[in-house]
Write a protein that binds this DNA or RNA. Structure first.
Length: 575
RNA sequence: GCCCUGGUAGCUCAGCUGGAUAGAGCGACCGCCUUCUAAGCGGUAGGUCAAGAGUUCGAAUCUCUUCCAGGGUACCA
C-alpha cells in the first residue's frame, strides 16, 4: 500500500510533466517501467525510484527528469527528495498508521494480493519409491513443497498436491526379495544378502525390513518356510508397509497430499499404452535394435529416448510421460514439479514428449533442488545411497518438526543445503527458528502481561492490570489507524517491515521461492526485538501504551500468519 | 567430452530482470538486565564478490575463457 501509493504518485506526476513538456522528448510513459526499490542507505528514504531508465527516451539527464517529476507532486504528507537519478520517499505517519490498520482489518488475510490471475495448479513433489524410509533429501522436498503449496494457495491459486508412487518397476521385486531374506532369518535360516558386487544390487539390505518380517510372521504364525510363497505376495506386503510408514511420517511432518498417484494404477488404466499410441501417431517414433525410440532430439533433448524396450515393456520415462499428460487431461492450467538435481536430465525428455503430444510444455515448471548434506559436529556427512543412511525419521526425532521444516526451507533451492544438526537443536539466537518463535512468544507475553495484575517484586504489593480484558478487546476489535500515531516515531522501521510482508508474498509466490519467507520472518523478528529493547510497551502513558500494544498485536499476527499459515511451524505463546 | 547447479566476510548464506558507499546471521571483540521473557539488544573488527577478458556512462549481477566443488549423462527406477 505504501509502495503502491508512492509509485502511483510518481507516475501521475510524470504524466503531468509529460503533458507540460517538462521531460524532454518523452511523449508517453509505459506503465511498469519504473520500479520501487529500497535504498541501500536508509538515510535516503524508505523507498526510492530510479528514473535513469527514462533517460533513454527523454534524452535528458536522469536528475533533471527526477526534479521535473517531483516538481509536479503536491503531496505534503510524505517527503520526496532527489539525489542523482533517484526520487527518494519518506512515508508520513498517515501511510504508516493506515498500514497497521490494514493488518487489523485483514488479519489472517493480510498480504493476500488482490486481482490475481488464479490458476489451477498441480504441485508434485517427493514422489519416492515405496521401498524404504525417506532419507534426508526427501525431507527438503517435503518441507519446501508443502510450504510452496501453502504459499500459492494463500496467493490465490487453486493448488492440488500430488505424490507419484513409483510402485511399478523392478525395485518392487527387489523389495520382495529382500523381505524374503529377512523372513528366512526370522525363521532361523542361515541366510544373508549376497556380497557379490552385481548380485547385491537386487536387494535392499537396510534393516528396516526386519520389523516388517516380524509382523508378517505374527500374522502368519503357521508359516514354517516360505519356499512356496510367491515373491509378488511379499512385494505387495512390504510395499504396503512402506507406504504406511511414509504416510505416517508425512502426516507428522505436516505435509498433506490431496492424492497419492500410483504408477501401477496408471499402467492398469491403459493410459500408458494409449500414450504410446498417441506418440506413434505423432510420427516421432521409430524402431531401432528392436526397441521403439522417441525422437526427442527434434526438440531440446540431446539424444533420442527409448519408449518401448526390445522386450516389449515400457520404460520409466514412458509412464512418466503418460502421468504428465494425464495431469493436463485432468484440467490443470499449470504443473509444478519439485525434482532433485539428480533428475535434471529428465526435463528435456518430458517436455519434448508433451510437445509431441500437443501440450504446452511451458506450462510445466520443474524446480530443481540441490541435495542436502548433513553436518554433524562440524563434519559433513554426504548423503545419497550410502549405508549409514540417516533417515528423515531419525532427523525429525533428533531436532523436532519445527526446526526440521524451517531448516529445510530456509535456503535457496539452488544451493546445496548444509543441515547442521547441532545448530538446529540449539535454543538460542544461533538457531533462527528459536529466534523467530521467541519473538512471537514475547509478543504474546506482553499481551498477557498488560491484562494481568502487576506485582511489585520487592514489596509484593499488587496493583490492578494496566488494561482490562475488555479494553484490550475493544482496542483490537475497534482499531482505528490514529491509535498507533504516538509510537510511529520510534517504530517506523518495524511498521515498514510489516509493509514488506506484502511484497515478500508476491515475489515469493511468483518466483516459487519459499526461502524468502524464512528470511522475512527472521527480519521481522529482529526488528521486533530491537523495538522491544528500545521501547517500554506497558507504561503509565495510556495513549502510548495503547499505540504500542496495537503494534505488538500487529507484529504477532503477521508472525503467526507466516509461521503457522505458510511455514507450518509452531508459533508458541510461551517458551 | 557434454548438460545442470554453485564459488560473495573465519563459518552459513542474501543480493544476480545491470545502477547510490557489497548486506545479514553465526563466530571474535567491547558494552547493556531494580522495569513487559538477556532464549534479547547496541557497537567494533572482518571483502582483490574464484581468476582473466569483453559489453556498458556504470558489472557481484550480462557474454566468453579458465580453475574449483556437487550432481547428471541407461532398453534402472
Amino acid at each position: 500500500m505504501i509502495k503502491d501509493y508512492f509509485i502511483n504518485t510518481v507516475e501521475q506526476a510524470l504524466q503531468e510533466a509529460i503533458k507540460s513538456n517538462k521531460v524532454g522528448q518523452m511523449s508517453e510513459y509505459e506503465k511498469g517501467t519504473l520500479v520501487v526499490e529500497k535504498p541501500k542507505n536508509p538515510d535516503f528514504g524508505d523507498f526510492a525510484i530510479n528514473v535513469s531508465s527514462l533517460a533513454r527516451v527523454a534524452h535528458i539527464a536522469p536528475p533533471m527528469i527526477a526534479n521535473a517529476i517531483v516538481a509536479e507532486i503536491s503531496d505534503t504528507e510524505n517527503a520526496y527528495s532527489v539525489v542523482g537519478g533517484f526520487i527518494n520517499f519518506k512515508a508520513g505517519k498517515k501511510l504508516l498508521s493506515n498500514l497497521v490498520g490494514e493488518v487489523f482489518k485483514k488479519r489472517e488475510n493480510f498480504g493476500k494480493p488482490e486481482n490475481i490471475n488464479s490458476e489451477k495448479i498441480l504441485l508434485e513433489y517427493i514422489s519416492a519409491n515405496p521401498t524404504g524410509p525417506f532419507h534426508i533429501g526427501h525431507g527438503r522436498w517435503a518441507a519446501m513443497g508443502s510450504v510452496l503449496a501453502n504459499l500459492l494457495k494463500f496467493y490465490g491459486h487453486d493448488v492440488y498436491q500430488e505424490f507419484y508412487i513409483n510402485d511399478a518397476g523392478s525395485q518392487i521385486k527387489k523389495l520382495g526379495n529382500s523381505l524374503a531374506i529377512r523372513i528366512r532369518q526370522e525363521l532361523g535360516e542361515k541366510v544373508d544378502f549376497p556380497t557379490d558386487e552385481v548380485e547385491r544390487k537386487n536387494y535392499y539390505p537396510g534393516d528396516y525390513l526386519v520389523p516388517v518380517a516380524k509382523k508378517y510372521l505374527s500374522e502368519n504364525p503357521q508359516l514354517k518356510n516360505i519356499d512356496n510363497i510367491d515373491v509378488k505376495t511379499l512385494s505387495d506386503y512390504a510395499k504396503l508397509e512402506m507406504e504406511k510408514l511414509q504416510r505416517a511420517l508425512l502426516d507428522n511432518f505436516r505435509v498433506h497430499f490431496d492424492r497419492f498417484y500410483s504408477e501401477l494404477d496408471l499402467h492398469k488404466s491403459g493410459k500408458v499404452e494409449k500414450c504410446v499410441d498417441l506418440l506413434r501417431k505423432s510420427g516421432k517414433i521409430y524402431e531401432k535394435d528392436g526397441a521403439e525410440w522417441f525422437r526427442s532430439s527434434d526438440y531440446d533433448d540431446d539424444q533420442d529416448r527409448v519408449i518401448k524396450k526390445a522386450d516389449g515393456s515400457n520404460t520409466y520415462l514412458t509412464a512418466d510421460i503418460a502421468y504428465h499428460a494425464d495431469k493436463f487431461d485432468r484440467g490443470f492450467d499449470r504443473l509444478i514439479n519439485i525434482w532433485g538435481a539428480d533428475h535434471h536430465g529428465y526435463i528435456p525428455r518430458v517436455k519434448a514428449s508433451l510437445e509431441a503430444l500437443g501440450y504446452d510444455s511451458t506450462k510445466l515448471e520443474v524446480l530443481l533442488g540441490q541435495l542436502v548434506n548433513l553436518v554433524i559436529n562440524g563434519n559433513e556427512v554426504r548423503m545419497g545411497k550410502r549405508k549409514n543412511m540417516v533417515t528423515l525419521d531419525d532427523l525429525i526425532e533428533e531436532v523436532g518438526v519445527d526446526a526440521t521444516r524451517f531448516w529445510m526451507t530456509m535456503r535457496n533451492i539452488d544451493t546445496t543445503l548444509d543441515f547442521d544438526i547441532e545448530l538446529a537443536k540449539t535454543n538460542s539466537d544461533e538457531n533462527p527458528v528459536f529466534y523467530v518463535q521467541y519473538a512471537h512468544a514475547r509478543c504474546c507475553s506482553i499481551l498477557r502481561h498488560v491484562v494481568s495484575e502487576q506485582v511489585n517484586a520487592e514489596t509484593g504489593e499488587k496493583t490492578k492490570a494496566p488494561m482490562s480484558e475488555n479494553e484490550l478487546k475493544a482496542l483490537i476489535d475497534g482499531f482505528t489507524p490514529d491509535v498507533v500515531l504516538p509510537t510511529l516515531e520510534t517504530a517506523k522501521k518495524l511498521v515498514l517491515k510489516l509493509e514488506e510482508y506484502k511484497s515478500m508474498i508476491k515475489t515469493s509466490a511468483e518466483n516459487r521461492q519459499v526461502y524468502t519467507i524464512c528470511r522475512y520472518v527472521q527480519e521481522l523478528a529482529s526488528e521486533f526485538h530491537s523495538f522491544y529493547n528500545a521501547n517500554r510497551v506497558i507504561s503509565d502513558d495510556k495513549q502510548m501504551m495503547s499505540a504500542r500494544i496495537a503494534l505488538v498485536w500487529a507484529v504477532k499476527t503477521v508472525l503467526y500468519n507466516a509461521l503457522e499459515g505458510l511455514l507450518a511451524v509452531d508459533a508458541p505463546e510461551r517458551m
